[in-house]
Structures are given as C-alpha cells and as structure tokens.
Nucleic acid binder design. Structure first.
Length: 666
RNA sequence: GCCGGCGUAGCUCAGUGGUAGAGCAGCUGAUUCGUAAUCAGCAGGUCGGGAGUUCAACUCUCCCCGCCGGCUCCA
C-alpha cells in the first residue's frame, strides 16, 4: 500500500495511508481532536471529513469552535431539524436553511400553520434522531438528474433553485461576478442525506449527528420565498446550536442582557418617552427627563457645529407640492411621504427631508466662490411613511428629527469638507461613549453608469476624494460597489455598542442631482457662473433612533453629563432638610442638576429609588454631616465613598457634569 | 403590507362561559428613620374598539386598532 503526503497549515507534512480519509488523518494527528474537528479545507475548499485527500494536498482542519466550524455545526443542525419536520409533516416543502449570525433557520412551506407550541415536539424528534448517530452522506449527481428527483418528490422550491443553477451555474445569478463564474451550466450538484431527509446542499457537513452537541429551537416567523413579497409566505423556523452547553448559556445570557437594556423597557421605567396609540404608531412623546437629555444633546450638537463653521437654520414642516416636484421627491420618494393636504387650492406635503429648504436658503442670494464652502445645519423634524410592520420603538419611527446639514462647495473643496465631516462624526460618537466605529464607502457600479446622475468624470473624482479621506483617516473601511445612490457616492458611519452590535448612524453623501434640479450656481473667480457640489450629511442620524441606541448602550445609566438628575440629595430626617437645601443650592450654582428626595421614607428606600432610576451620585446628609459640614457620597453601582467636604465633591463634579470636548476644533 | 403570537388597573402579571384579582406605583395616616423596599388604610378597570353567538362573554366567532418576533447575511 502506498501513501500520500499532505501539508498542514503549520507547514508540517503528514503521511496518510492511501485510501484513508481526513477523519483518519485527524485521529492520526491527535486523538483529542477527534470529535472537535467538524470539517476540513482541501486547498482552500471546504470538504467533509470523509474525503480521501489526493497526494500533495494542503489540508486545514476546521474546528467546531471556530467561526467557520460553528456555521457548519449549525448548518448540520438545520438539516437535522428539517429531517424531523419531514417526519412530522410529510407534505412539507423545503426552501433554504442556512446558518446565520446567532444560529440557523429553515424556510419551509408547511401544510398547516405551526406555532411555538410545536417547537418542543420538533426538538424532541430531533433528539431522537440525533441519538441514532445518523451520518450526513454526500451524494453527487448531474443537475438534470437532480431536477428529476426533486420534481418527483414535489420539492418545488428545490426545483426552482436547481433551474437557476442549470441556467446560471449558481443559485445566485446576481453573485456570478463575485464568485468568478462558479460551476459550468449542466454541471454536477451535491445532496446530503440525513435519515430520510435528502437536501440539495453544497456542504460541507459534520460526519454524523453525534457531532451535534447542544441545540435549541428558538422562534417562528414568516418569511417570503426569496424575500420577495409577491412570493408565497413560508414558515421560518429559527434555532441555534453551540459546541458546549456553556456557550449556549452565554448566548442566552446575552439575549437576556439585550432584553434588560431594551430601550422600550428602560424608556418606560425611567419615564423618558412614550408612543401612544391615540397619537399614532411611530410618533414619539419625549417626556420631561427624555426631553432634558435631548436638550443636552442638541445644545452640545449646536456648539460643536458652530465651532466648525456651520450656520444653523430652521425650516417649515410642509411645502407646496411644486417644491417636491422640482426636488424630484414626488417621482422617487412619494411612497414614503405622508399624503398631501389642500390649502387655498394648493397642495402641500409634509417634508420627508430638509434638503430642498436648505437649497432655497442657498439660492436666496447670488453666491460667490468666496461664500463657499457654505454649510447649513438643522435639527430638522421630518415625517416618513414606514410600513407598519417595520416600526420599532425609537429605532424605526415615522416622525423624527435628523441632525442634518448640507454643504455647498467647489469641487476642489470636496475632499477637505468630507474629511471634516467625518472627523466631526467620529468625534461626536466618541463623546457619547462609542469609541469603536465601522466605515463603508458606497461607490457606483461601473457596468451601470447610465442610471446615475452626474458625469462619469464627476463620479470618478468624487469617489477618489472619498476614498482618500478614508485612507487618510487610518480607519479600516469596506468599499461596496454598486451601493451608491443614483445621485452620488457616500460614506456610512456605524457605531459599535457595548453588546457588539452595529448601528449605522452617520452618513456623508455627495449629490450630483439636486444642484442641477434647482439650477444652483456661484460666481467664480473668472466672473462666470459655476455649479456647486452638494454634500448631505447626518452624524447621529435621527435623534429618536440615536437616543434609543444610547439608552441600550448605557442600559439607562447615562454618563454624568447626560444624566437628567446628576445628584440626588437625601436628608436622613426632616430636621436635615435645611442643610440639604443648602447643599442643593451650592451644587445648582455650579451647574449640577440636583434633586432633593425628602419623601417620608427611610434612607434605604430612597437610596434604592435613586439606584433604580440610575442617578449617578447620591448624597446623604444627617446629623453627622450637618455638624461637621460634610456630605456623605455614594456613586451609582454600590460604591459608598464616605463623608467629604462639599468643596471636594464640587471640585470633582465641576468638569464632569458638562459635555466633553471633541478634540481638535477648527 | 404579509406570516405567527399578544392586548385585563400607570407598570408586571393571575383569572377556560356564571358578581373582575395580586404585587409594585399612586393617595391618606402613623413612624423621623444612616446607605438597595417601615407599617396600616384608601382609591384605581366599558378586560384595546365594534359586531355576533348565548339565559349569561374578560373567556367562543368575525371585523378593526395597536404591540411583539420576523420577511434572501450565498443551494
């Protein structure tokens, strides 16, 4: 018997007896790895462990707890779930069942509706199957044969997928370019057999069900076939799987943590905002404490913008239909606009965006090149019709205030304007406690230049200006082709919150369309009229949404400068109230937001109240403090710091109660 | 919008066809208290809205409103 030499990722080689599989290789390398390796990569291609490697192959083992291994584990679990569903519902038709961020799902066309009560039944069936140590057997066959097989089994969705594959050589024709062509039309496809469930699937999979450790079916949702609402609605069964019980428990804990921080819950508990059915969905009431935080955010925002040469404006909430016709909103945005109202025979529409108003301010005078860059900022409230199913607390609403600005500049000023806007965006986010960001550059699709406003030359210059800004920033960014709006390329800024979630907030967009539509101009050094460039930008996005994110990030325990009540003062008994009043006045004079809690309750009760409402500082004053002119300080989160002179506390608070700086101002 | 679930007091939730309940919050009183809930009493609900079935509906049916989880992260 001969043997083959395989190369391992560490550069070493292993000899493997001819005809032996990768499973044998794993056992040969280290018996401890057996069961922890779920699949392998052969020369970069994912394969099952049952594969027999050819001589000279480069082998990488995929461990269960790696990102890739976890996906395979979940994907295999999705097949197990499908096998269980097929047993319980023989007429079920299967669509797709991929692994996702937190687990996996399978979209299934079921003969009757199922609810969460059915999940334990399916899960139980899965456990029975799992215990049988069923193998995942790979079967390859020509596309035509596969089509015949799936047609015979009535698996209409699989038939559709196979027809796409036959036509395009891949299941996703739009991705052909990225994948570099993939298989030739009329090629071979693979199936995986688990118990009686045979599924069209590229793989790889774990060798058998004993590799699956701990899984849980989580919820059910509807999902359109191929995400298109003209297609039939399928039942999507969600589940998750992990290599260990502890990992599953960590995941469940994280979900609970997210629930604890949910801004809808915290917003109610801390009395920050509400959304009332009588007013309408997606329309927000800012209660006094929430409004106070918003006011602090807005004041900070205005200060930072003035420092950087923005001029702040106010504009109306409605405008004549004609304006929206000129701006083009009526033709490409009308379905998102609140319907119009008629006044004196004229139709008026509620604004979904602020740009036309800012443009008219620009156009209200003849502008000279000396006026540029001309930066207009506004906390502008807009209304947009969002479909009822997508509304979500403060994060997706119908009425919201954008921290909007429009910059009119000369082409040669574009790069520095975008750089300044990006710098401001990042500085603002850092100030609110978000040090980590993600940047995405969206550029045109060179194959579809016809659909874009502006010339190819303008696009090329703008895109390279944005790209240079990003490169100089030193922050990693993704460049996505074809994601630009028809009117110009853009940079999107996402923040990363304490739970590691990404939230897109900021956006900086070049616009080649509006200046043309409104025929904007400026007089250049040559005395002739030129078209200015226009940049739309928002940093926080919308105040409503940003507030929601901020609540969840801090779990309601806002940093000192944002806390609606910064210091709670608790007199131990009635006779200490005059002293409490004195302390409050001193703090108030230093710009600290204080509240005396002199309710007829024990100190412990009031401390609990202050802790529960996330007040950052608690000051207790009783006989000892009155006598020695001290304050007893306690910080949010159970730190009792003992008595200190009022001056000491004042010194500590004086700086921190105010908004932070944002570094380099212009 | 669509699929599934939910809607009882300000909040969290019991109540499976026969006179609407609890805890917290609120109000009143007592207590004057030292670092995460003092005690007692009172008040609070067209059971999301409307129609129907029934001797009788929070409970069963239908319509509407709202909320929650989702609606292509490559077969």
């Amino acid at each position: 018997m001969g043997h083959v030499d395989v190369t391992l990722p560490d550069g070493g080689t292993q000899q493997l007896g001819a005809g032996l599989s990768l499973s044998d290789l794993v056992r040969q390398i280290d018996a401890d790895l057996d069961g922890r390796v779920v699949a392998a990569r052969l020369d970069g291609e994912g394969v099952d462990l049952s594969t027999v490697p050819p001589a000279g192959a480069k082998v990488e083992l995929v461990l269960m707890d790696s990102r890739e291994g976890l996906s395979i584990l979940r994907h295999s679990t999705a097949h197990l779930m499908a096998a269980a569903v097929q047993e319980l519902y023989p007429e079920a038709k299967f669509a797709i069942g991929p692994p996702v961020e937190d687990g996996f799902y399978y979209d299934i066309d079921l003969p009757r509706p199922v609810s969460v009560e059915d999940l334990p039944v399916i899960e139980e069936r899965m456990r029975v199957l799992q215990a049988q140590r069923l193998p995942y057997v790979r079967v390859e066959m020509p596309v035509d044969e596969a089509l015949g097989l799936m047609k015979a089994r009535g698996q209409t969705y699989k038939v559709e997928i196979l027809e796409t594959i036959r036509r395009h050589g891949t299941s996703r024709p739009d991705a052909v370019e990225e994948l570099g062509g993939e298989a030739e039309a009329g090629g071979v496809v693979s199936f995986y057999q688990t118990h009686s469930f045979l599924d069209l699937c590229r793989g790889p999979h774990v060798p058998d069900t004993s590799f699956l450790r701990t899984f849980k079916l989580t919820h059910i949702a509807g999902a359109y076939w191929r995400g298109n609402e003209r297609n039939p609605m399928l039942t999507r069964l969600y589940g998750t799987a992990f290599p260990t019980q502890e990992a599953l428990e960590r995941h469940l804990y994280r979900l609970e943590e997210a629930k604890r921080r949910d801004h809808r819950r915290v917003g109610r508990e801390l009395d920050l905002f509400s959304i009332e059915e009588e007013i309408g969905p997606g329309l927000v009431l800012w209660h006094p404490k929430g409004a106070l935080i918003r006011e602090i955010i807005e004041t900070f925002w205005r200060r930072e913008h003035r420092r950087r040469g923005y001029q702040l404006v106010y504009t109306p909430h409605v405008a004549r239909a004609h304006l929206w016709d000129v701006s083009g909103h009526l033709s490409w945005y009308q379905e998102n606009m609140f319907s119009g109202m008629e006044i004196e025979g004229q139709e008026y529409l509620v604004k979904p965006m602020n740009c036309p108003f800012h443009i008219l301010i620009y156009r209200s005078h003849t502008r000279s090149y000396r006026d540029l860059p001309f930066r207009l900022g506004e906390l502008g409230t807009v209304y947009r019709y969002e479909r009822s199913g997508v509304l979500h607390g403060l994060l997706r609403v119908r009425g919201f205030t954008q921290d909007d600005a429009h910059i009119f500049c000369r082409p040669e000023q574009l790069e520095s304007e975008v750089a300044d806007a990006l710098e401001l965006a990042l500085a603002m986010l850092r100030a609110f406690g978000f040090p980590e960001h993600h940047l995405v550059l969206s550029v045109s699709d060179p194959n579809q230049m016809a659909k874009y406003a502006g010339s190819e030359e303008e696009w090329r210059r703008a895109e390279s200006a944005l790209e240079r800004v990003l490169e100089k920033s030193g922050i990693a960014f993704d460049r996505v082709k074809g994601e630009a709006a028809f009117y110009g390329p853009k940079i999107d800024v996402s923040l990363v919150d304490v739970l590691g979630r990404w939230w897109q907030c900021g956006t900086i967009q070049v616009d080649f369309n509006m200046p043309d539509r409104f025929d904007l101009g400026y007089i250049g050094e040559d005395g002739r009229s030129h078209r200015p460039l226009m940049v739309h930008r928002a940093l926080l996005g919308s105040l409503e949404r940003f507030f929601g994110i901020l609540i969840e990030h801090h779990g309601g325990a806002f940093p000192l400068w944002l806390a609606p009540v910064q210091v709670a003062i608790l007199p131990v008994a009635e006779r200490h109230e005059p002293y409490a009043q004195h302390v409050a006045e001193r703090l108030d004079a230093a710009g600290v937001r204080v509240q005396i809690d002199d309710r007829n309750e024990k100190v412990g009760y009031r401390i609990r109240q202050a802790e529960v409402t996330k007040v950052p500082y608690i000051v207790v004053v009783g006989d000892r403090e009155v006598e020695a002119h001290l304050v007893s300080v306690r910080e949010r989160g159970r730190h009792e710091r003992g008595a200190m002179p009022l001056e000491t506390l004042l010194d500590e608070l004086r700086e921190m109660v105010h908004p932070p700086g944002t570094g380099s101002a212009l």
